[in-house]
Design a protein around this nucleic acid. Structure first.
Lengths: 200, 200
DNA sequence: CCTACCGATCGGTAGG
DNA sequence: CCTACCGATCGGTAGG
């Protein structure tokens, strides 16, 4: 039996509203209305609107990081394939995290800039570190010859923004399953950077 | 000698602010302060905040459409290459429009959802029609065998969102020139959908 | 383009 | 979790 706390309900309602209208386009009263309480009553459960945004963004940052960690640990043979399998697994994991929690993921991608001060800087740093995993996977592949790309860092940005684009259009129950989309997106990502002629 | 009207200055200031803080995170007073007039004085030049957003978004929609039109007209030999050159030209043109006017482009990509009523619907329709150009270019290439992709429409979305990602990170005067970025991005886009073995 | 002003709404607090 | 309330700010108008 699953307990849904009011706090969780508030975060879910906020995620949905932040996705639709943005952080600053959503009022504290909008969130309260969505969980059927008075605006001021929200402060019995959260300390501020910023705090709700932080919970959502921080949770997703950790989820993306954990998914990438799992890929790294589950893929000891990656070196043998010159990182090709590794990149495709990273891309699939990233897409999977997004489709698994599309509303929070959307807020993470689009609204982290509404964070203030140190929190904003922390997320900026963690995003850079995360992107670096894609970048160095591509750079490794270029070194071993399975990938062929002029600028690994630019290619990583290209791929990651394409994957993040999911956030703008994905809706559960669409024409393609989440699984199919993740597979297709990972395939497109791999092919964008792959060397044209397989190396011996 | 180039005349800069106050109205143009207002739109430029608004583009920059809308990009940084979003439409609803920007107040009419913020825009006025950026052009050194009083908040209420803004209404001597514009009829509403929505109207400023509309001008920016509509202008960019037309710019993207015109760039794609130019590619179509300048490329009568596209069929001979099975649409491969055509897609790369479309992608390069799209990237070029973004880097040429990064602030307005950013507002177009991220803030069109803040448009109300019919205007929002109009932009949604025009975006769909624009995306359809990419989609059918890819579908044509699949038919002639130069491209190989399971779902042309999904591939078009993938490519377009990757190109639009430019809006989140591009800044003039960076490590790579706008031209180099457009070339590299167009190349990555083409390779993502290209058939692995060239067809006879 | 300014000053003065409008009603509505904002995020948040006090005190129960 | 509620009612009542706070000062600040919102987009916009009136009248010059």
């Amino acid at each position: 039996m699953v307990e849904i706390t009011r706090r969780q309900a508030i975060e879910e309602a906020a995620s949905s509203l932040f996705r639709e209208r943005g952080y600053s386009g959503t009022s504290v009263r909008d969130i309260a209305r969505a969980v059927d309480i008075q605006g001021a009553s929200l402060y019995a459960h959260v300390t501020s609107k910023q705090d709700v945004l932080w919970s959502i963004v921080e949770h997703m940052a950790s989820t993306f990081e954990a998914a990438a960690d799992a890929v790294e640990q589950a893929d000891p043979g990656a070196a043998a394939f010159g990182r090709g399998v590794y990149l495709i697994a990273l891309a699939r994991a990233h897409a999977g995290v997004i489709t698994d929690d599309i509303e929070r993921a959307s807020v993470f991608v689009h609204e982290w800039r509404a964070l203030l001060g140190d929190r904003r800087e922390e997320i900026a740093r963690r995003r850079d570190a995360y992107e670096e995993r894609f970048s160095s996977a591509i750079a490794d592949g270029v070194r071993t010859g399975v990938f062929e790309v002029e600028d690994p860092s630019l290619a990583a940005t290209y791929v990651l923004t394409a994957l993040n684009g999911l956030v703008t259009w994905y809706r559960p129950g669409g024409r393609l399953s989440a699984r199919a989309i993740a597979d297709l997106y990972a395939d497109l990502s791999l092919r964008a950077v792959k060397a044209t002629r397989p190396v011996p």
